[in-house]
Nucleic acid binder design. Sequence first.
DNA 1: GCCAACGTTGGC
DNA 2: GCCAACGTTGGC
Length: 229
Amino acid sequence: MPPKRKAQDGNVNIQSRATKRNKTNDKQPESSQKAQKQHPKKTNEDKNQGNDVTPMYRHWLLKSEPNSRLENGVDMKFSFDDLKKSPSQTSCWDGVRNYQARNFLRDQMKMGHEAFFYHSNCKEPGIIGLCKVVKESYPDYTQFDPKDPHYDHTSTKDNPKWFMVDVKYVRPLQRFISLAELKKAHQDHVRNGGPLCNLALFTKARLSVQPLTQEEWDFILKMEQRDGK
DNA sequence: GCCAACGTTGGC
DNA sequence: GCCAACGTTGGC
């Protein structure tokens, strides 16, 4: 199902790699996905996996940093514009190292699912555009690269710990929806009831891959039409 | 740059 | 399995 097939794997896997994303999709051993079935040891990883009872989601919010920031000498910058400029306007979403976020990437993000592209750790945090899943769960290769800031020596190719998906640029929002505006709506909905009362942006603020209910998604998309603030 | 909130680690 | 120490996230 991989729709587009960029050049072969030839391209260098080096570039902006952020806490979550970076370059384009390259082909990965999709076959090794079966490895994810295995859970040889039950440690605190398992207790962190306990979100499998949550409903299945079809909408997402992905955080990325639009400004340069070095982590072990590697620039974490990956803006919405960087996604647009990526080959095929597509990038893998690598570098996620949180079990809850990993589980969403691995288990729930499916072809065609849409996501808000959120700019974090910047002057004006907020949602800037839309992207969509164009390739489902496969091992995040950065976990195997000792030079990568997100290298994980405890992970093996036979039993990879971290996964990623590919996302493709869809469109910018008609207007930027700032965190401040979302927070106002959220706080109002907490007090008076409303679809954003449990928005993960505020209830699970540190999650970099966040699920949205249909109602949350629809409400935020409608904010796009309103006149700012 | 500060720091609150929260996730992870490891001793016990 | 508890919990203190530590590390990270990310708004401000």
